[in-house]
Design a binder for these strands. Sequence first.
DNA 1: CCAATCTGTCACCGGGCGGTGAATAGCAGG
DNA 2: CCTGCTATTCACCGCCCGGTGACAGATTGG
Lengths: 218, 218
Amino acid sequence: MAVANAAVKIPLDVPVVEKRVRNRAATQQAILDAAKRLLAEEGFQNFGINAVARGAGCDKQLIYRYYGGLDGLVEAIGTDLGSWVADRIPDDTGGMFLLTYGDLMERLSLLFLDALRADPLMRRIVAWEVSESSEQVRRLSEARSKALAGWIERMRGSLVPPKGVDAQAVNAMIFAAIQHIVLASAVSDQCAGLALKNSKDWEKAATALKRIVRGVYG
Amino acid sequence: MAVANAAVKIPLDVPVVEKRVRNRAATQQAILDAAKRLLAEEGFQNFGINAVARGAGCDKQLIYRYYGGLDGLVEAIGTDLGSWVADRIPDDTGGMFLLTYGDLMERLSLLFLDALRADPLMRRIVAWEVSESSEQVRRLSEARSKALAGWIERMRGSLVPPKGVDAQAVNAMIFAAIQHIVLASAVSDQCAGLALKNSKDWEKAATALKRIVRGVYG
DNA sequence: CCAATCTGTCACCGGGCGGTGAATAGCAGG
DNA sequence: CCTGCTATTCACCGCCCGGTGACAGATTGG
């Protein structure tokens, strides 16, 4: 009797289980948010349909319906990336007068360094880019580099690099260095023997970066 | 009759199916080779017990027996990494007299760039390092950086960096740049807008690298 | 010659994956 | 009220993964 009683006990909290509202737009957004969160926190390794659906608290079928599968979802993330740059990296010169190309590049380098350090999603995407060459990640990579190039172009204004220096190649090296050092720090707190834990370490890194930029551009 | 005849036909080549010789050492080596090949060619993403066993042409059970699982196998790869540096990167100065620290770093940078470009396994490992922070990859990373540091130390000789420059930080930046640019080129033929396909592109990259080194160390 | 040992193989397990077809629950308009 | 329509869920598939226990063939030592 007691057992039966317990079995038929009115479930007090079952009706409270907040029912998912029927709202396609909201669900779509929830899926996109879950995808970005998952990618940022767990990385691309365990990034899949099931995981995203679990994270969004809905059925994976909806991902197929609303985004046409993982590919479409990744593409949607890529589209978001455009607005990212605008949000995360200041577009003005911070009140500075950038007299020389060297001034500009020093500032851009440090801004990019900080922005990348502060954004786990972006870091995961960069790591993904250098680990896989699928169509998925190629599009993501393209969106990222386009947004970045646009930002640099906007900041550049009318400044031109000094003659005799292949600015494109040198800048690629500098940005490569920033990306790699930030990626390395995110997984192992160091890079090539250089510690990258506390803010003091990062001061050293920033100083080295400035020195490199100044060494090239004066 | 004809059918029966065909069915009982003496199998001419069946006895020829080269039987796997019973040789533990050889099998162990085959497994290790298969693991390195697989990692180099396919990357760490699909690197697993089943794939290695398939590649080595033996049962996965043997991997457990001889290496104690994937972890032990990865560790064995790491051990091999020590000899890698000695094989791939010349230990002498190539007949050059390295008068200054700048000379040294320029040469080391270019050597490292070429060595990394030529070694897919090493590239995959670096990509792995920045994508995951498991114990497995941490050990691998350690072996790699130790080998690299040893090589640099040996090459350095008695040369010392100029005063007023944080050589450790600057060098970390330079090596980070090299690693990232090589990784990027391996998956997408470009990095931050800089094409990295033909040898002419790489000439430009090398020139930029030299310019950076010289800008810092003179 | 037999028994122990070593190398190698096979079959099987549970579980998570990506993917799909069918059912269900809430909302509109008549 | 019923009838569609749409958002959402469920149940199921085949596949491959890592991992394990039992077995078979060769080798060796007493």
